[in-house]
Design a protein around this nucleic acid. Structure first.
Lengths: 195, 195
DNA sequence: GAAAAAACATACCACATAGTATCTTTATGG
DNA sequence: CCATAAAGATACTATGTGGTATGTTTTTTC
């Protein structure tokens, strides 16, 4: 990797962490360049505005990250409710980067920026839609192979799972880690009843 | 009501709306006093800081509001799953103040401020705990009267319902009103299976 | 190895921010 | 009706903000 591409990536990653912990609007360019040791000139050479940097974070940091944690775990294996459950468990309990106090970077950004910026909203909608479609897809396959009931709506179930995730990330901020366990227990019960 | 108490209330209500739409940190004192036509001197006579105003909004505007919309609908009647469902439906579809684009004021504030301020976190935890206890309470009663299964955990179910709410408010920001309907349909299915 | 472009550095600007100091007006109790 | 305190108005400050102008250094290209 060239040195220029390297500083660009440093900015994206550090800014991602700062925004994750403090919010997009509360993260100033000045603290980003302070923590990255990158000067303002370098910053504005790589990004023409703060918004452009924010969108790059979504597309270049969050898209790949969510694919790894939210979609790949659904790929192989046949026990669909089990796969969905373990994907959720992995997200909530095993991911070493996520902190219960700060929730989920994607959910945080949706919450803060969707109403304020159409560009952010579009990029974040993409992200959620991909996840929903992945869940919906494995549910449809399970329905075709007869492991979950045919009268259920995969799209509806996928949405329900996703809303549960978004909500428990929110509740975790006030209740702490304990509510992750309770949520997972009830999610498991819910998923088992799909059969 | 005295004139002084009146301006205090005006500030709380207008600031509540502004924060609901734009977030707490993005809502400046200057725009609050501009939209309320209250001078800065008057503002700082009633609140010693922005944080004190924020906490007053939670306690004096949000507590009563949530009691009316989230707890009272659970009070009378016997069909507990039905009451929980209608409470949720009322919140999502009937409440004329809430706007799908801006989500839920309480959820927004939890998302933004819980990690940043212990005072906000405490006040907001109170709010959520009260709701959870109210739901848990009616579920326990239903369990005692035998209308829902005895092996289920009311606390766990209450948390699951609340997380669903928080999540769908989040998803509404990207998906719009449609996902409210889908969520409600799946919630109804989930609640009926508690019997 | 020099010209050209890419990458970075520094100093600055206009504006917004929360909060304060100091004043004037309005209500209230005797 | 007057003294006193409550309520409100105005001007100001220190700091932070995103962004720019204008430089210097480093890398590429021929």
């Amino acid at each position: 990797m060239g040195k220029a591409a390297d500083t660009r990536l440093i900015i994206l990653q550090k800014a991602f962490e700062l925004i994750y912990r403090n919010g997009y609007q509360a993260t100033s360019i000045d603290v980003i360049i302070a923590t990255t040791q990158v000067t303002k000139g370098a910053f504005y050479y790589h990004f023409k505005s703060k918004e452009e940097m924010g969108l790059a974070i979504i597309k270049e940091v969050m898209y790949p990250g969510m694919a790894a944690a939210m979609i790949e775990p659904l790929m192989d294996g046949t026990d669909v409710p089990g796969k969905i459950y373990r994907m959720m468990e992995g997200l909530l309990l095993d991911n070493p980067f996520f902190d219960v106090r700060y929730g989920c970077p994607a959910i945080n950004l949706i919450e803060e920026m969707s109403p304020l910026s159409q560009s952010f909203k579009s990029a974040l909608t993409q992200l959620v839609v991909r996840w929903q479609h992945a869940i919906e897809h494995v549910l449809t396959l399970a329905q075709q192979s007869g492991t979950i009931r045919p009268d259920l709506s995969p799209r509806q179930i996928a949405l329900f799972v996703i809303t549960g995730y978004g909500g428990v990330r929110n509740m975790g901020k006030v209740f702490g880690q304990n509510c992750y366990k309770d949520f997972l227990a009830e999610l498991k019960r819910y998923l088992q009843k799909l059969a």
